[in-house]
């Protein structure tokens, strides 16, 4: 046997293209599994397209369709759709289509600003709380619980009735209320991530706490963060509309969808449908679009988790 046995030395030349264990190396998997999963997901695509259309409408629309949204024209009030006003005019004589665009701008800006602010702060807060653990974690999370115990809408109402609301002011207020959920989400994620061996490995190399958090924990928690950010955009837009609907939103001449709805309701019984349906439809469409995207991202992440 030994004489006939070729052994590894005499086993012939290596097979070209098949180095040791080369299987997966020769066929790299999709480099960006998220992007691939998103592209193949109809809901995500629908959400993204809808968001793009609404953004285009709000930001590029005014360049093509110029309207005066500052001066009151009572002579042009309550015109039904037609003529120079495709969606008619409201009680102050503002063009409804142009006002939808202006209102959308502030809604989208607010939503994105709140999402970015809360995500950045909430993520860091949650990541450090989870990484530090122990007493620091307990204190930090009790602070979150305390904030959560404050009824958000009531606080908002008090604040806006005390101070004249401005867009940055409302962004700040809404951010104060909504950084809590990303903080909790990320903390939970980090609690499971920090026991993983790659975190210990980073510590073994002498990596510092901030390095571990920023380089390893936050990128790995990015999935939940992005999903929550998407939902935050939708929530903030709804919240602003709620405030405006209650008459406590941005003061005139600022436009926003919630205020338009309130204004329209007064005249709904007069048959002025064009004052209610357009802002309602675009508001719903925006919220639905962001929720679709968030849902799809969530699913895409789940798939990724199953794969690894």
């Amino acid at each position: 046997m030994t004489a006939a046995d070729p052994g590894p030395v005499a086993a012939g030349p290596p097979v070209p293209g098949r180095p040791a264990e080369a299987g997966p190396l020769t066929a790299p998997a999709a480099r960006r599994p998220w992007a691939a999963a998103l592209a193949g997901n109809r809901r995500a695509l629908a959400g993204l397209v809808l968001i793009a259309l609404i953004a285009l409408f709000c930001f590029a629309g005014p360049l093509l369709y110029r309207t005066d949204q500052v001066t009151v024209h009572l002579d042009l009030a309550q015109l039904p759709p037609g003529g120079g006003h495709p969606l008619g005019t409201d009680a102050n004589g503002y063009d409804v289509l142009g006002r939808l665009m202006a209102g959308g701008r502030s809604s989208l800006e607010l939503g994105l600003a709140v999402a970015v602010a809360t995500t950045v702060f909430g993520t860091l807060y949650g990541a450090f709380a989870g990484y530090l653990g122990g007493i620091a974690d307990a204190l930090m999370m009790r602070a979150v619980d305390t904030f959560l115990a404050v009824p958000g809408l009531v606080l908002l109402l008090i604040m806006v009735s005390m101070f004249t609301p401005t867009l940055p002011g409302i962004v700040l207020l809404l951010s104060l209320l909504s950084w809590l959920s990303p903080a909790r989400l990320v903390r939970g994620e980090v609690l499971t991530l920090r026991t993983r061996e790659f975190v210990q490995a980073a510590r073994m190399m002498g990596g510092t706490g901030p390095r571990v958090v920023l380089r390893h924990l936050v990128p790995n928690a990015a999935g939940v963060v992005i999903v929550s950010a998407t939902f935050t955009v939708a929530d903030s837009i709804l919240m602003l509309s709620t405030l405006s609907f209650l008459g406590l939103g941005l003061p005139p001449p600022h436009a926003d969808w919630g205020t338009m709805l309130t204004g329209g309701l007064d005249f709904l019984y007069d048959g002025s449908w064009w004052l209610v349906y357009p802002p309602a439809v675009i508001l719903i469409a925006t919220v639905v679009a962001f929720n679709l995207l968030g849902d799809a991202l969530h699913d895409a992440l789940d798939v990724r988790l199953q794969r690894t």
Partner: peptide, 15 residues
Amino acid sequence: LQMVFQDPFSSLDPR
């Protein structure tokens, strides 16, 4: 002093 871990799936940062 370095360490090699048990689970090759969790010892490398997936990102």
